[in-house]
């Protein structure tokens, strides 16, 4: 029987690992190589790596847009790399589970470079919204199984709107397409998986947007990965209860606690969820 996947997400900004809130506040959290190896050892089912660098600057420790530092036991020397491809190469050497790389993927060459460096899948957002046929080209070239379409949605809370709007460019720009229409479209074009993320819930620790997960998993015929909002292990169970096919992802909760992936899995098993341990 297929097991429920638990997936830690690492956010990389200018070559260093950060945590995020509402897609805007970013805080330095530690060494990514060390994290990937720990996650891999702790039975994470996959690892997703999102490069949220806004420009092409991978110059480490420039720290312009990074605030605070929350980790002290870091071996800094591993971080001395100057582009994402080198980062993937080093990460894939220690990662014994599937590795998805997202962020700044604009064309087939970008995908090819990442796969060659050791990524197993790529997550695409803005480029797919700007040219949906890119999904078709990418899935024909590399196979659907490695094309994850990441969908960022936000509700306009000031207008008290109940509608999820789709955003591109790291949540900066609203796109005029309905959520269900977009899901059906990417499926037809050959997407292999959906990574659904609520910008409102990002970094809040109040749990997934369960209604959003329900809507997306009902429309989608391809696997769906839920992201954004997890603050405690029970939130994974709540996500699972919406739809047992959902893969459960989170970022911040895994960063600060030792053995957090293992403990989350133990909690899930206690709650009768079939996951790998």
């Amino acid at each position: 029987m297929l097991k429920t996947r638990l997936i830690p997400v690492l956010l990389l900004k200018n070559g260093i690992l950060v945590r995020s809130r509402s897609f805007s506040l970013h805080q330095f959290t530690g060494n990514h190589l060390y994290q990937v190896q720990r996650f891999s050892d702790w039975k994470a089912d996959e690892i997703i790596y999102l490069d949220i660098t806004r420009d092409n600057n991978y110059n480490l420790y420039s720290g312009k847009s990074v605030i605070g530092s929350t980790s002290s036991n870091i071996n800094m020397k591993h971080n001395n790399q100057d582009n994402i491809i080198d980062i993937i190469k080093s990460v894939s050497k220690v990662c014994r589970v599937p590795l998805t790389i997202g962020g700044k993927i604009k064309n087939l060459k970008d995908i090819s470079l990442r796969l060659k460096a050791g990524a197993d899948k790529v997550a695409i957002n803005t480029a797919a919204l700007e040219d949906p046929l890119f999904i078709k080209k990418a899935s024909e070239e590399f196979g659907s199984q490695c094309i994850v379409i990441s969908i960022d949605v936000k509700k306009d809370l000031q207008k008290k709107s109940d509608k999820w709007n789709i955003y591109k460019k790291f949540g900066k720009e609203k796109v005029n397409i309905g959520l269900s229409e977009w899901i059906k479209k990417i499926q037809d074009l050959g997407a292999g998986e959906i990574l659904i993320q609520s910008i409102n819930r990002d970094g809040q620790g109040k749990g997934y947007d369960l209604k959003l997960l329900e809507v997306v998993s009902n429309i989608s015929k391809i696997p769906v990965i839920a992201l954004a909002g997890v603050g405690e292990y029970q939130d994974f169970v709540d996500g699972y209860n919406v739809n047992k096919d959902l893969a459960l992802a989170a970022a911040n909760i895994f960063h600060f606690t030792e053995l957090s992936v293992l403990n989350a899995k133990k909690y899930m098993i206690k709650n009768k969820i079939n996951t790998r341990l």
Binding site: L2, R5, D45, K221, P223
Partner: peptide, 16 residues
């Protein structure tokens, strides 16, 4: 074949 079921394709994940 998932025409008659709600099986998601691709089959992705850890299986026994």
């Amino acid at each position: 074949n998932n025409k008659l079921s709600n099986l998601r394709v691709p089959h992705i994940g850890w299986n026994d």
